[in-house]
């Protein structure tokens, strides 16, 4: 087995376990109210982290590039109550334009 297939196999198995094991072990149980409260705020916290890392993340450095312009424009669209698909298009088009002119 070469390096690529080894990596694909290990990561496939580990990722499947990461996704399935908590669902199987903790699934269907009564959970304390405190856990529900944490799960409720987990979505905005994790989504904000995804937005930040995908917008500003570089190779262990903060990068300010066309992505930030695109996401900034999309944020304006979202605040103006644009549909989600329009926001994504605004982001892509803005980033593409900024890249083309810089």
């Amino acid at each position: 087995m070469n390096e690529v297939w080894f990596t694909v196999a290990v990561l496939g198995v580990v990722t499947i376990a990461i996704k399935a094991v908590p669902a199987v072990v903790l699934g269907g149980r009564e959970v304390p109210a405190a856990a529900t409260q944490v799960f409720e705020t987990l979505a905005p916290a994790l989504l904000a982290a995804l937005v930040v890392t995908q917008t500003f993340g570089g190779d262990e450095e903060i990068v300010l590039d066309a992505r930030a312009a695109g996401v900034g424009a999309a944020a304006v669209a979202v605040v103006l109550r644009a549909p989600i698909v329009v926001a994504a298009l605004v982001a892509a088009v803005t980033a593409a334009i900024v890249r083309a002119v810089t």
Partner: peptide, 26 residues
């Protein structure tokens, strides 16, 4: 500009989840 589309999608999803001040703080 595809790499900007995903954070934009997640931003829109995040905003749709912000129902209380606690959500905003989180």
């Amino acid at each position: 500009g595809l790499d900007a589309a995903f954070p934009a999608l997640f931003f829109a999803l995040m905003v749709s989840q912000l129902r209380t001040r606690q959500h905003v703080s989180a």
